[in-house]
Design a protein around this nucleic acid. Structure first.
Length: 200
DNA sequence: CTAAGGATTAACT
DNA sequence: GTTAATCCTTAGT
């Protein structure tokens, strides 16, 4: 098991990074409890030519501030007043690209994840959805800007290679407001995984 | 199917 | 300064 190095996040092609993240393992170690799982669904957001991206056309606000940092930090934000969504900032400083994690296959610390979600049995309700996996992992907006090479939140490569034919590329979810960019096939997920979020 | 919830932002005064 | 619309969704009818 190898923690992804900072150089991984600094690569320029956010779409490519989104693909490669499938099959990697996302972990959190918060309050002394280790939880984590295998990434099965991601979406890419580019700062250029992508109206769906919070940082498109250089929009810089209090919320999007960390997006402009060099790759390798967490961008966590609240949506619909309730749910934290976890994004990974990529590219070099000033080039505000991000990858949204939408689905996770639970692997580590399942009892704690069930507790955090208020469930008693393991089902897709546990981590299949961007707002669900953050609950399961204990990620809240408190972790806005967290360094992903630290020991609170990180990603590991466990040597798994996902063959291209196992990856499904499709339009992203919930961004119809982005006009023509809503059609970009920048949502990636593993075929035959029960842990991808329900399509709209 | 729909209501909920609160931060964020753009558009006003 | 204030207001209103919006949102990378989920849980509950």
């Amino acid at each position: 098991m190898m923690k992804l190095p900072i150089a991984f996040y600094r690569q320029p092609d956010v779409v490519q990074i989104s693909r490669i993240l499938l099959g990697k393992h996302l972990f959190t170690n918060l309050n002394g409890v280790l939880t984590g799982g295998r990434i099965v669904e991601t979406e890419a957001y580019a700062h250029q030519n992508d109206q769906a991206c919070h940082s498109h056309l250089g929009r810089f606000t209090k919320r999007t501030r960390v997006m402009y940092e060099a790759g390798g930090v967490a961008y966590v934000y609240l949506i619909y007043g309730r749910y934290a969504l976890f994004n990974i900032i990529t590219n070099e400083a000033g080039k505000a690209d991000a990858v949204l994690i939408r689905g996770l296959e639970p692997i580590e610390g399942i009892p704690e994840m069930l507790l955090r979600r208020g469930l008693t049995t393991v089902s897709p309700q546990l981590t299949a959805g961007p707002g669900l996996l953050t609950q399961a992992l204990g990620i809240t907006t408190t972790y806005y800007g967290t360094d992903l090479t630290g020991d609170l939140i990180w990603i590991e490569d466990r040597g798994e290679i996902i063959p291209e034919e196992q990856i499904l590329a499709s339009p992203r979810v919930g961004i119809d407001y982005a006009g023509v960019d809503a059609a970009l096939p920048w949502r990636f997920r593993l075929k035959n995984s029960r842990w991808t979020s329900p399509a709209k």
